[in-house]
Each structure stands twice: as C-alpha cells, then as structure tokens.
C-alpha cells in the first residue's frame, strides 16, 4: 500500500514538473529577469516552476541576495578599497616612474 502511494505520488510530481520548464531553464529565466523584461509566457512559466520547486526557489532567493549585496556594498569591497582594506596590488616602481614623467611633462 505504501509503495503504491509513493509511486503514485512520484508520478504526480513528475507530471507536475512536465508542465513547467526544467530547472536548468528556470535558473536561466531567473538570471535573465535581471537583465531584461521576461515575456508574459516566460514569467508565467517561471512562477509555476517556482511554486512547485523548492530547489529553484532557494536558487532564486540566493541570486537575489547576491545581487542585492553586490549593489549595496560592492563598491566598497570590489571596485574601490576603503582605507582599512589593504590594496591587492600596487603600481610597479617602473610604472610609477613612467606615470610621474608623463604627468610632469605635461604640466
């Protein structure tokens, strides 16, 4: 009885997932929604997929979290460095000399 129930459940879940695009396409849609407006059909498909798929739901939340933290704080840690964080690389002495010459030759 129990095995019958699990196999029916399995078939039902499989049937549900056949109605929506697979996870690899859904993740692509999540990503693309940041860069363009999805079509109505795509938005609908993605919504349905996220309704039944816990993994992609998590994925979507994580991608949104990443996006948010990069937009909010990325400039501090990635593009620019605040005074406390040591710079990852410095100009070579040669390059520094060359730059100084370039600048002073045009003063």
């Amino acid at each position: 009885m129990k095995t019958l129930f699990t196999s029916v459940k399995h078939l039902f879940v499989l049937f549900l997932f056949k109605l929506v695009p697979p996870c690899n396409e859904a993740t692509m849609l999540v990503s693309r929604s940041f860069d363009t407006k999805l079509s109505f059909k795509e938005r609908f498909q993605l919504k349905c997929h996220l309704l039944i798929c816990a993994a992609c739901n998590r994925f979507s939340k994580q991608i949104h979290f990443l996006q948010k933290i990069i937009h909010e704080h990325g400039h501090l840690h990635v593009h620019t460095h605040d005074e406390e964080t040591p710079l990852r690389a410095t100009l070579s002495d040669e390059a520094r000399k060359r730059l100084k010459n370039e600048v002073s030759s045009r003063l």
């Binding site: 593009h79 990852r88 690389a89 410095t90 100009l91 520094r96 060359r98 730059l99």
Partner: peptide, 30 residues
C-alpha cells in the same frame, strides 16, 4: 605632480580588478 603618489595605487587597483591585465590597467590609469 602629487597625483601619482596620492591616487596611483588606488586607481590601479580599481582598473586591475576590472581589466585583469596589468599593462592595460596601467594604460587606463595613465
């Protein structure tokens, strides 16, 4: 004349992070 010492490294870092290429980053700073 003080710019290179004041901002050189900072700008170089910024450029290097994006361009990932030292000569290109130096060019951009120059």
């Amino acid at each position: 004349s003080g710019w290179v010492d004041l901002y050189g490294d900072y700008l170089y870092n910024y450029a290097l992070m994006r361009l990932k290429d030292a000569p290109m980053a130096e060019d951009a700073v120059q």
